[in-house]
């Protein structure tokens, strides 16, 4: 079954073979998008990476998929967009034309009071939006810089995933105004899984904050 084959290729980091399989049949793109919902965390994240690679290659138009993923992030008939924010960001990073209309919506999900209020909180979706900000920090610093203050506020969030992802993103943004708040997390021993450089890394929030501070200091030198 193509779904199983694609999952195995992603786990083995065989991205070219996975891309070839996706291009072989149109139905396989739909199967790939379905892997954004995989129960296996690493498969979900590597699907994000693969979508970015497909966008970079430029031969498959992912704009319709981006529109659908944006719909999944907001529609009320109960489709939920697990990993849609991350996927849209990765596509935009590799081929801005495919996601130009969607990217601001994705980045500003973390501004959305409906999503960020504790009563309405959907942590994975919010975390995905924060990760998207961090992922675009190198290639689109001007685009993400306005999100800095919101992320600094999230450093005080009761949820360690939100604190940790925000620290990670602020480090990539080299957001100097976050120094004091990042220092305050030096004793935070809660663990998070953060996806970077094709791998899932289990680190503490304190470690994420420390790495972020290192980046900010290096940038200011």
């Amino acid at each position: 079954m193509d779904r199983e084959i694609l999952s195995e290729l992603l786990l083995a980091r065989k991205y070219q073979e996975a891309m070839d399989l996706v291009k072989k049949r149109h139905r396989n793109l739909r199967i790939l998008l379905g892997l954004l919902y995989s129960e296996e965390e690493l498969v979900r994240w590597r699907t994000v990476t693969l979508l970015g690679l497909i966008a970079a290659e430029g031969r498959t138009n992912l704009a319709p998929a981006v529109r659908r993923m944006l719909w999944f992030l907001s529609e009320e008939s109960s489709t939920i967009g697990w990993c849609s924010a991350q996927a849209i960001a990765e596509i935009y990073k590799n081929n801005p034309g495919m996601a130009r209309d969607a990217i601001r919506v994705v980045l500003h999900l973390s501004d959305d009071p409906e999503l960020s209020l504790p009563a309405n909180r959907n942590t994975p979706i919010l975390a995905g939006s924060i990760w998207a900000i961090g992922a675009l920090a190198d290639s689109e610093p001007a685009l993400v810089s306005e999100m800095g203050p919101a992320l600094v506020e999230f450093l005080k969030d009761p949820d360690p995933v939100i604190r940790g992802f925000s620290a990670w993103a602020l480090g990539r943004m080299r957001f100097m105004a976050a120094e004091e708040a990042l220092n305050a997390l030096s004793g935070d021993d809660s663990f998070i899984n953060i996806y970077e450089d094709d791998s899932l890394k289990k680190i503490t929030v304190a470690r994420a904050a420390g790495d972020a501070l290192e980046n900010i200091v290096k940038n200011s030198e």
């Binding site: 379905g34 995989s38 907001s74 109960s78 939920i80 697990w82």
Partner: peptide
């Protein structure tokens, strides 16, 4: 209007 909730592994 709606509400973004779900369970792990499923999109609906």
């Amino acid at each position: 209007h709606g509400g973004i909730v779900g369970v792990r592994g499923y999109g609906g």
